[in-house]
Amino acid sequence: MTQSGGRGRSAEYWVTDAGRAELDVDLGWSAFAHRVDAGLEPWDRYWRLVGFGIPERRRGARDAIRNLLVEFGAAPVQSGLYVHAHDLTDFVFQLADHLEVSDAVTTFATRTIRVGEELSDEHLVERLWPLADLAGRYDAVGRQLESIAEQAPATNGDQVAASMVSAIVATEAVMRDDPLLPSELLPDRWSGTEARQAFLAAHSAASTHSELFRNSQLMQSYTQEIDRALAETSGSFWNRWWPRLTNAYQARLPPAATRS
């Protein structure tokens, strides 16, 4: 962010282009997570796999593809092979084209995956994604958000705003490690879903009891994007978010990744 004028409470801060790109990543996946929670992104029962054999001379591009796949929530099955329940094909190929390594990337879909002796979808998820650890982190964030919602009416407005900003940062940190699997593959009463509901309640309480928080365009953008996403079809949502997410990820790629 950059300060455009004023000091103290009169200071004004605006998001830079780089900051907006990072914010778009968080906003986009947050809105998508709420769509998953609401059953608006059902699983088609296919697993999507991405494999790549990028030569050592393009190590920067190889590392970039690997890092992006992990950030998308894909899990490594073995060296150079990643799996996700959501279809990342177009996303991966667009970034691979940008890196000029699309010829070294292969994607395919299957209804059945066997890793060792694990064949069922439930056991596969348990093996590939550390959901128990993620659930514990979501529970901690959920308690933080519930406390804000409960105490907001009796707390100074500026303190409410500060607490909510801190909670948003904590929520984003957990969500960045969440593969955002379809609800069909998650445990009942999934902690991520409950934490996101607690987020909406805390955000509403902070907006009601803190003028500072209520007047922040940045803070209000979270629920605005979530509300809009929940009212859209899947096609409309992705048509709107696809370019923003792709541009944000391309902006992150290190210069070395695009060199031959």
Rank of each mutant, 00 (worst) to 15 (best):
I148N: 02
I148C: 05
I148G: 03
A149W: 04
E150L: 13
A152L: 09
A152K: 10
P153A: 10
A154N: 11
T155I: 05
T155M: 13
T155E: 09
T155L: 11
T155H: 02
N156P: 01
Q159P: 00
V160H: 05
A162G: 00
A162D: 10
A162F: 03
V165Y: 06
V165L: 12
S166Q: 15
I168G: 00
I168F: 04
I168C: 07
V169L: 09
V169K: 11
V169S: 10
T171H: 13
E172K: 10
A173G: 05
A173M: 06
V174T: 03
D178K: 05
D178A: 04
P182K: 07
S183K: 15
S183L: 15
E184W: 05
L185H: 07
P187K: 13
D188V: 14
W190L: 08
W190G: 07
S191K: 13
G192C: 08
T193D: 12
R196A: 01
Q197M: 09
Q197N: 13
L200R: 15
A201S: 13
H203S: 14
S204P: 00
A206T: 03
S207K: 12
S207E: 12
S207G: 13
E211F: 03
E211G: 14
R214I: 00
R214F: 02
N215A: 14
N215C: 08
N215S: 14
S216L: 04
S216T: 05
S216Y: 04
M219P: 00
Q220A: 15
S221V: 04
S221K: 04
Y222T: 13
Y222P: 10
Y222H: 15
T223H: 05
Q224W: 01
Q224V: 08
Q224D: 08
Q224I: 06
D227R: 11
D227W: 00
R228S: 08
R228V: 00
L230R: 14
E232M: 14
E232I: 01
T233W: 12
S236A: 15
S236Q: 15
W238A: 00
W238L: 03
N239D: 15
R240F: 04
W241P: 02
W241M: 11
W242C: 05
